[in-house]
Amino acid sequence: MDKELFLVKKGLADMLKGGVIMDVVTPEHAKIAEEAGAVAVMALERVPADIRAKGGVARMSDPQMVSEIMKTVSVPVMAKCRIGHTIEAQVLQSIGVDYIDESEVLTPADEEFHVDKWAFRVPFVCGCRNLGEALRRIGEGAAMIRTKGEAGTGNVVEAVRHQRAVQREIRRVVMAPDEELATIAKELGAPLELVKMVKETGRLPVVNFAAGGVATPADAALMMHLGSDGVFVGSGIFKSGNPAKRAKAIVDAVAHWQEPEVIAEVSKNLGEAMVGINIDVLDDKEKLARRGW
């Protein structure tokens, strides 16, 4: 592995820490996100709530649309490829996107294998539900991790579950004596070298964002409280009553997550939040987080 290349892949994610990355479907949305203080945007054709509503196969966005968003904003632009779809990832790299999200929000192209992310110059972010899944993705070359949450629901409960699982398992690794690490690695299904790194540093070896169901400034601050380095907001902004105001409020809440009085102030008169879906009414097969392994 090229150490220097991995440093700059991981390094861009380091620059995003403490920030909010917003899903946008048009250059106009991208402008609103940048104006609100987003540190990056995720360019896609439909936000997860619409993917859920419309059904069918969700794929990589039209490269023309992604390129237009890249021309419109000065912040980094991310785009999604399907799990295991190496060619979609190559296409996105060839048009020069700054980060690729190998995402369970799109319909998986491969139910067994993820993309070999070491083979790319462009960095990847991948979703996880627990520490083992996070370390498997990092082992495949991911330079940034996010919780899967349950995208397009406006319900933060799954993101909370996933972030708590990651942090709990990190604490377990940190407390474990060295002779237990190989067995823990086996149980987690994770590379031993990465488990050792977690023990040494007390955290994931890459930046760890929250994603999937964040709808309010308080949701975003909660994810920071649980140990996230920053927050992705998908449908939560542009499916709400006043996207510009909500976007700015979420950016403020993440920067000042330890100051409830700031969160109170920015939460006033935000208009309607996205309606949201209770996770328990979803069948397991409707849950996007179950895609990937």
Binding site: D14, M15, G37, A38, V75, K248, D252, A255
Partner: peptide
């Protein structure tokens, strides 16, 4: 530090 200059300005100005 490093980060996004547009975000730095907005957050500090507020």
């Amino acid at each position: 530090p490093g980060g996004e200059s547009t975000t730095f300005w907005k957050l500090s100005n507020r």
